[in-house]
Amino acid sequence: MAAVRLEFRNVTRRFAPTRRSEGVTAIEGVSIAVRDREVVSLIGPSGCGKSTLLNLSAGLDGPSVGEVFVDGAKVTGPNSHVAFMLQKDLLLPWRTIRENVEFGLEIRKVPATQRREIALGQLKICHLDGFENHYPHQLSGGMRQRAALARTMATDPSVVLMDEPFSALDAQTKLVLQKDMAQTLSRLGKTCLFITHDLAEAVALSDRVLVMSKRPGRIIEEIAIDLPDRDDPIARRSSEKVTPYLRRLTELLDVAHADV
C-alpha cells in the first residue's frame, strides 16, 4: 500500500463562542487518509466544515481534538508540503502572471533565475505561455484560475488542497480546466484533497469520494470510484458507468440533508 500523505486522526474542531456568535463544532471525529498520488473528493452540504478541514490541512488552523499529519509529520503550522487553491484565484493584481506564480517560491527564498525557470515551466504546463508578462486583470476567469493552478504547483507540494476551484467558471471552461488539472495531477504524481459541491465533478476527478454530514461534519460514507481515465474527466463523464455512482451520491446527500 502506498504511503499516506495526508491523514486526519479523529479530528474535532470546535469554535469557542464569541460575543457575536455562539460556539459551533465544525467537524467532529473526522478520520481521513489520503494516500500518495490519490485524488480524494470531499462532498457535503454547505456549512459542513469542508473549509475547516482545508484550513487544518494547510496548518492555518489547529484541531481542538485529534491530530493532522502531512507526510508523516504532525501539522503544527503552515508548512511547505501543502499548497491550496480556492474558488477565488487570489492572484495579486500588482504582480504579473509570472510573478504571481513565483510568489510561493519567492517566500521560500528560491533564487530569482531558478524561480523564473520554474514559473515559466508551470505556465507552459497550464497552457499560459505567452501570458507571463500580463497582469491578472488582463486575463479571463478561466486563465486566471489556470495561473492559480500554476502557482499552486510551482512550490512542488506533496499535497494539494482544492476548495471548489472551478465553481465560479462557466460550464465549458470548467470542463477544460478539470481536464487540465486532472492531467497535471497525474503527470506530476500529486496527492490531492478536493472539496466540491458538484457530484459529477467529484466522480469525474477522483479515486475516492468522501461524503460529509451536516454540521457537525462527520464522514458518513466513503465511495471508491472504480473507473478508468482518472486523468481524462471528459472521457470518464461520458461513460455510462458514472450513473450508479451519481445516483448513490445523490441518495447519500439527501440523507445528509435530512439527518440533523
Binding site: 484550513n55 492555518l60 503552515p78 511547505s80 501543502v82 491550496f84 510568489f103 510561493g104 517566500i107 512550490t155
Partner: peptide, 8 residues
C-alpha cells in the same frame, strides 16, 4: 492566508 500557507 495564501501568504501564510506559503510560510510567509
Amino acid at each position: 492566508n495564501l501568504g501564510r500557507a506559503f510560510n510567509a
